[in-house]
Design a protein around this nucleic acid. Sequence first.
DNA 1: CGGGCCGTTGACACAAATCAATGTCCGTGG
DNA 2: CCACGGACATTGATTTGTGTCAACGGCCCG
Lengths: 250, 250
Amino acid sequence: MPEHSDLAPYLARLNRRSILTDDEQALILALPTRVQQVRPNEDFVRLGERVDHACFVVEGLVARFDQNVQGGRQITALHIPGDMPDLLSVVQPAATSALQALSTSTILKIPHSAIRELASAHPAIAEAFWRDCMVDAMILAQWIVNVGRRDALARLAHLLCEMACRYHILSNDDELTYEMPMTQVQLADVTGLTPVHVNRSLKKLAETGTSIRFGHVVIASWDALTKVGDFDRGYLQEDIDQSDRISICE
Amino acid sequence: MPEHSDLAPYLARLNRRSILTDDEQALILALPTRVQQVRPNEDFVRLGERVDHACFVVEGLVARFDQNVQGGRQITALHIPGDMPDLLSVVQPAATSALQALSTSTILKIPHSAIRELASAHPAIAEAFWRDCMVDAMILAQWIVNVGRRDALARLAHLLCEMACRYHILSNDDELTYEMPMTQVQLADVTGLTPVHVNRSLKKLAETGTSIRFGHVVIASWDALTKVGDFDRGYLQEDIDQSDRISICE
DNA sequence: CGGGCCGTTGACACAAATCAATGTCCGTGG
DNA sequence: CCACGGACATTGATTTGTGTCAACGGCCCG
């Protein structure tokens, strides 16, 4: 399946936090890929499966699922276009969580062998991959705080704040808007709540001017939402100052 | 402050999951370190601080703290002797969480510069560091499941199971025992519960034969505890088969 | 037309939080 | 040596946030 590299968005993501030479950037863009379409509610990486490629999200919305034995499902990460949901598989090929598309999605499969080759030959690239994984890890830590120490309303508000930042839709306009194709059941799986309670909490959240209906998020007041959601975007590590970035190979 | 390397336990941790040559192992042991004693309830890495060294736990118990704005504290990670709580700082020097000792602890500070030099010159070492960080990340994901989808009793049981595995005290004996110097307040900060409720839940847990008093954990029946805690150790990625390990430089 | 999936709503049950008080151990200072 | 305060554990009474159960409505699609 031929494919002129569509990895440009991933390179953009790396460049936001790491420093790569032109050569290194070209090598990343030249990574071999295989397109795959995935339908919603279908695990395209199964629990315990041993994978030999990493996935890049071109289009859609992908969730990482963990489950407790009783069958209770919990989403431990959300991944939007530009993300590599399982870059960690390069270094840990036995999947400890399942990957599933929440909406019809397009992903690119990149062979571990090619990624390893690059990382091995170019320390700066290895560092960028490592750092990229750590950004996801910091989000994981914040999610622990979210489900551990915030009530239902704040959990939802915090999630909507985080995704707004990750979608880069913040502006000075009064009203913010973005598309996140999630059902209330899926929101429940993210927040550790019940679908019923998500429904009620969303109604209460709507009173503050923020709503999500059929995947369409509307935020009337960013300030109000961040206050309800107890949100501080620091952990997302966006907008790192050029001078603040570090490179393994100085 | 002179210090003949005490990094042997860290090397052992790396060797459990990664493959390193004798040379590479020697280089890790030769990393420069500075000893530091830290008292309980004292942040030795503060939120937002910019660090230039990573920490290795020699003795004691270290917690990573995140907080919501209202001051509610949540522990997002526990680190025992042999762990590097903030290896990620090598790649992300602005701390997004605080580090604090729960009991009097001894740590070694290792300059980022030395670690970077090693990782840059030796891809296999960079890979081992990267993988080490990902093990911690998988624990983070499990903790999300823990606070999101398990009730108080199961949360505590799951935590005690996890720490038992990480302390490597499992055997075929009927009764398992280990020291984990945590107060009930700290257990509450880990599990997203109230100290009062931790107390009550521990009493109920004691009925199943597991107790923790003053940092002393006693497990009468491992099978019973794993059942209560809905525990499956797979995510800890221990005991990786030698033949299953992967190296960047094949 | 019928059957899912999704969202919505109400009545009720229950787990956990909150508020408040008491007990114990331990180190410190008078 | 004893009084005191602080950290920690414990317990009871009460409130509240969230889960559970159950039913209904809209919508899309076959």
